[in-house]
């Protein structure tokens, strides 16, 4: 049995969850009003996973994530102003407006790679962990991906390599039951993704990714194992995405009852109520916390829009280590 979590840890997780949700709401709002023009893959419904993982990470631990990964980066500590400036394509953004939402990168907070290619982050995470092995820097690399990604070669090669070399990396699969419009069973031959770990001789754990305590326990064990030289772990975190694959997707391929049941079990209000029942916080305290987050997002948004777009000279910069003529 894992030790009961402290009130502080619970509130830290809730703080991240609320931040992720409110940030998602605001991004969707700005897209609807046409102020943000970008591809966007909402993680609404999946807030628990990165919140429970990241309270177990050090600020300099590494993260490799995917197009549906802004929540992972925000939970890791990515400054909102830098994020919003990037989403708005401004030169003060994390990537000077050149990468966009699918390629958020912020090494200061350990956000090392965001990829738009399914599965490709997995071997890269293995490589970051390899660099930690050589440098003996004590860092753990965490990488997030979806259920569909476990059907691509890069997943299998990356896991095998990480296990053979016993590297400090944690593979976190957010199983939201769909890959674009393809239901899990249509594309995946095994019943669980966790069982795939057996082929690579590493622990594979399936957990309710919408249960903060359970998710925290599994993540802590895996991160501790990685940090202590015990090698990689595959975590399959069961969850659901409420807003389809991307903005504009009407989720027609998801049975209405399945969507309704998932939304009914929305982890956010449930956890909020649970915190109050436990006496960890009052409604007023949580409301105040949420209001602070809202202010922070508002400030980030205003800052982003006040910044300039990058100049055309940026086309010749960063292609190589030196500027092109």
């Amino acid at each position: 049995m894992a030790k009961a979590l402290s009130k502080e840890t619970h509130l830290a997780m809730y703080q991240k969850m609320s931040l992720i949700k409110q940030n998602d709401d605001q991004i969707q709002f700005e897209m609807k009003t046409g102020k943000l023009m970008m591809p966007y893959y909402s993680a609404r419904g999946q807030e628990v996973i990165p919140s429970a993982v990241s309270v177990n990470l050090n600020p300099d631990d590494y993260l490799v994530t995917i197009y549906r990964g802004i929540h992972d980066s925000v939970a890791k500590g990515l400054p909102l102003k830098d994020l919003w400036a990037e989403l708005a394509g401004r030169d003060t953004g994390t990537c000077k407006g050149k990468g966009g939402p699918m390629h958020i990168t912020h090494p200061e907070t350990g956000v090392m790679v965001t990829t738009g290619i399914v599965g490709s982050g997995i071997p890269i995470a293995t490589g970051l962990a390899l660099s930690s092995f050589y440098k003996k820097d004590g860092k753990v690399t965490v990488t997030n991906f979806g259920d569909g990604a476990s059907n691509i070669g890069a997943f299998h090669e990356g896991l095998n390599l990480a296990s053979v070399w016993k590297l400090p990396v944690v593979f976190i699969c957010a199983n939201n039951r769909y890959a674009e419009h393809t239901a899990y069973e249509m594309g995946t031959a095994c019943d669980t993704i966790a069982e795939r770990a057996a082929s690579y001789n590493m622990p594979g754990v399936r957990v309710d990714g919408n249960d903060p305590e359970a998710m925290h326990a599994v993540a802590k064990e895996a991160i501790d194992r990685a940090r202590n030289g015990g090698g990689p772990t595959l975590i399959e975190a069961m969850t659901f995405r409420f807003c389809g694959h991307n903005i504009g997707d009407d989720s027609h391929y998801i049975p209405a009852e399945e969507m309704a049941a998932a939304k009914e079990a929305d982890p956010l209000p449930r956890y909020r109520q649970w915190l109050q029942n436990q006496g960890f916080a009052t409604d007023e305290e949580l409301t105040a916390m949420e209001a602070n987050i809202a202010e922070e997002i508002k400030a980030a948004k205003e800052y982003a829009y006040s910044c300039d777009f990058p100049g055309v000279e940026e086309l010749k910069r960063d292609v190589y280590a030196y500027d092109l003529a």
Binding site: R90, P310, V319
Partner: peptide, 16 residues
Amino acid sequence: SSDCPTPFCKPLEDAF
């Protein structure tokens, strides 16, 4: 088009 990866933001994408 310019010899660089396609940039994200609109002004750069247009210039690219």
